[in-house]
């Protein structure tokens, strides 16, 4: 097991290097001259050359990449023009806010999704199975930000129950209850898509396992329905579900760009959306890199968890 973990950790290194290369290349595909973008068309040739030199753009790509990598390793992600502050500081400050949404969203989606999926699979083609299948279909066909807008329209504007924007009330806000009230709708919005995907995966995976020989054998041994479902089928269906849950954690981080924009929630996603509209490439680059790195580590933990559930890895 330890060897497995070390092995996987070793495999992370080339992936992480690849991620930095990809983010670096993102900057290179910007059409036109980066200097023109930064200075506008009116700058003199001397100004442009000076900037070019100070940015290291006169060097070849190889050198530029290693400069970039070196900067990142030292925590220098550049400076955000939108916030007029170092990118890393902006991101770290906002990462916590994103976590306030993402962690409960994944938790809700996982618990409800697995329950609903198992419940549907116990009676395939029944009314409840079909209702769940149809709900999953609609939820996966729905842009999450649109769902967010609908929630705002209904709970926020129509009923006036919940605040629809920001993280806390401007006056006297900031305590737990206040933040929770602000977070509720964005959390539901984020959870919806993941919930649907997790439900679908659980159902499919359970139905696959339930049609296997060993489940039939366990029924032939006189085991009760609950023993078969929770004792035999679920443990075999769970690994596939864990993988999907891990993917959802990543989607929460990127889906936040849309959801946080809709709710003006001051997280990483909102910052990225602002970076896009302001063409603040430093911030965009830094944000994408940070999310990708977090995602790589989430996947690593999912792999380890997967192995914990897999006897073939556990005992060898």
């Amino acid at each position: 097991m330890t060897r497995f973990i070390l092995n996987r950790l070793g495999q992370l290194i080339p992936v992480l290097i690849g991620v930095t290369i990809a983010v670096f290349l993102l900057r290179q595909i910007i059409p036109g001259d980066a200097v023109d973008v930064l200075l506008g068309g009116t700058a003199s040739q001397e100004e442009r050359d000076a900037l070019r030199e100070s940015l290291g753009l006169d060097k070849n790509l190889f050198v530029q990449y290693f400069t970039y990598l070196g900067n990142i390793l030292q925590g220098d992600f550049g400076r955000s023009s939108t916030y007029n502050a170092p990118v890393l500081g902006v991101l770290i400050e906002r990462l916590g806010n994103t976590a306030i949404l993402a962690i409960p969203a994944v938790a809700i989606a996982s618990v409800v999704g697995v329950t609903a999926g198992v419940w549907a699979s116990r009676k395939p083609n029944s009314f409840r199975d079909r209702s769940i299948t149809v709900s999953v279909l609609i939820l996966t066909s729905m842009p999450s930000f649109w769902l967010g807008i609908l929630l705002i329209l209904f709970f926020g504007l129509q009923l006036g129950w919940l605040p629809v924007s920001g993280k806390q009330s401007l006056i006297g806000g900031g305590d737990f209850l206040d933040v929770a009230r602000h977070a509720l709708l964005p959390i539901l919005t984020l959870a919806a898509w993941s919930l649907a995907v997790i439900t679908r995966m659980t159902r499919t995976s359970m139905l696959g396992v339930l049609s296997s020989d060993y489940v039939r054998s366990s029924i032939a041994r006189g085991l009760s329905k609950n023993q078969v479902v929770y004792g035999h089928a679920l443990p075999n269906a769970i690994p596939a579900v864990i993988t999907v849950i891990g993917l959802q954690a990543g989607f929460q981080l990127s889906g936040a760009v849309l959801t946080e924009t809709v709710f003006s929630w001051p997280g990483i996603g909102f910052a990225l959306a602002q970076a896009i509209s302001n063409r603040d490439m430093e911030l965009l680059q830094g944000g994408i890199l940070m999310i990708a790195v977090i995602f790589v580590f989430i996947n690593f933990f999912v792999d380890v968890l997967y192995a914990v559930f897999n006897p073939k890895v556990k005992v060898s």
């Binding site: 690849g18 990809a22 989607f251 990127s254 889906g255 490439m281 990708a292």
Partner: peptide
Amino acid sequence: VMFSFPGILLALGIGAAL
């Protein structure tokens, strides 16, 4: 490496860059 960027994020990055 491409899978390390969760879905829409990569599209956002490329879309924004282009």
